[in-house]
Amino acid sequence: MKELMRVFKAGIYKDNPVFRQILGICSSLAVTNLLINSFVMGVGLMFVTAFSSFTVSLLRSTTPKHIRMMVQTLIISAYVIILDIFLKAYFPSMSKALGPYVGLIITNCIIMGRAEAFAQKNKPFISFFDGLIMGLGYTIVLLVIAFFRELLGFGSLFGIQVLGENWVNWTLMIMPPGAFFMLGIVIWATYGLFPKEEQDKGGVKA
């Protein structure tokens, strides 16, 4: 239980993949102009990270050390393809909106980072949980960025218009630079919000 709590805290803020480890930045910039895109991307990443961490951990004692990267890539790509097929078959509009980004989940450093840093040394169940929570930490940051980008850029939230007719959309927020500004602000704000523990040298670096 204590272990679960520790992993949970690490994933959400102490060692958050986006604003602490600065991983998965490419997709945080790319899909955050709409909340719904960020949400689907986040859930997709949670699924892939959780299952690939689980599988990597399950095979960790039998996997020969020098080919482990190859094995991890194979495992991750398989889950990404499963997700891609699933979205195509059951959420075609989402699959269209995310376009190539679903396939690019495989390049998300968070997944390989967790497989290397955590799943390689821990039991399957806790690895699954770690993947899930790391994905959740990523999703939360994405949603925060997307909340401001969609609100300021389109005047809407989850596609529902919330700001009145007189609202002038901030074009900058929809464009890629808007994501850079928002991400910078998020990293800055969280840096002040969750002070780094100075003596914490055992933090997992991916």
Binding site: H66, M70, V71, L74, I75
Partner: peptide, 11 residues
């Protein structure tokens, strides 16, 4: 041999 077989089976 083992890594090759391992990779093959997993694939």
């Amino acid at each position: 041999l083992f890594p090759v077989i391992f990779m093959l089976v997993l694939t």
